[in-house]
């Protein structure tokens, strides 16, 4: 018997089961990478179209990581295109200058208002911002994050450490 050809209906069904369940996370990631809701919608739209086109290449490992990797790459292309990127070199330098013992009072952090937190996140380079969102909001583990951002697990960990150092520095200073 001839194998049944893959039809567009099959692709739609696969898309619906593989990609659609992760759209809320996808939107959130795009929202904080691009920095605003409108661009996030464009990014999600484009990423969904990309995912749909390449749905046949999904290897069946982690639908969430596969979907979010596409969203992340789409968002980063968007950033490059619009030159909105914070140069990561500067931020790394700053992160390294901050004394790791310089710990703000926890109470100070707890009192930080939403706007200051968002500003501090927006000021992070994209490669720190994405790991913060994936870890703190989506609560993904290092292995999944590493798959999404295409970096070794150790790199994910050190980016998280640096990102937190920068955020604590920014939020501890505001007051």
């Amino acid at each position: 018997m001839e194998p049944k050809p893959v039809t567009i209906e099959d692709d739609q069904a696969r898309f619906a089961t593989i990609v659609l369940p992760h759209m809320a996370q996808a939107y959130r990631l795009a929202r904080w990478i691009t920095g605003n809701p409108t661009d996030a919608q464009d990014v999600v739209q484009e990423a969904a179209a990309r995912a749909f086109r390449s749905i046949g290449t999904f290897a069946g490992v982690s639908p969430a990581a596969w979907t979010l990797a596409i969203v992340r790459n789409t968002a980063n292309s968007w950033l490059r295109k619009h030159r909105r990127e914070v140069p990561s070199g500067d931020a790394e330098e700053l992160a390294d200058k901050i004394d790791a013992t310089e710990t703000p009072e926890s109470d100070l952090l707890r009192k930080a208002d939403v706007e200051s937190v968002r500003r501090a996140v927006a000021a992070l380079p994209a490669q720190y911002r994405e790991v913060i969102v994936l870890r703190e909001i989506d609560e993904l583990d290092y292995r999944e994050i590493a798959r999404i951002v295409d970096a070794p697990i150790g790199t994910v960990m050190s980016r998280l450490a640096r990102a937190r150092r920068l955020l604590m520095h920014a939020l501890g200073e505001v007051r």
Partner: peptide, 25 residues
């Protein structure tokens, strides 16, 4: 401090996609 930071990040960064977001395939 890291746990406090986590708390305020979760509060500040939670967001839902707009309900009328339409994906055209």
């Amino acid at each position: 401090a890291v746990l406090a930071l986590r708390g305020c990040l979760r509060e500040a960064l939670v967001c839902e996609p707009p309900r009328n977001l339409v994906l055209r395939m």
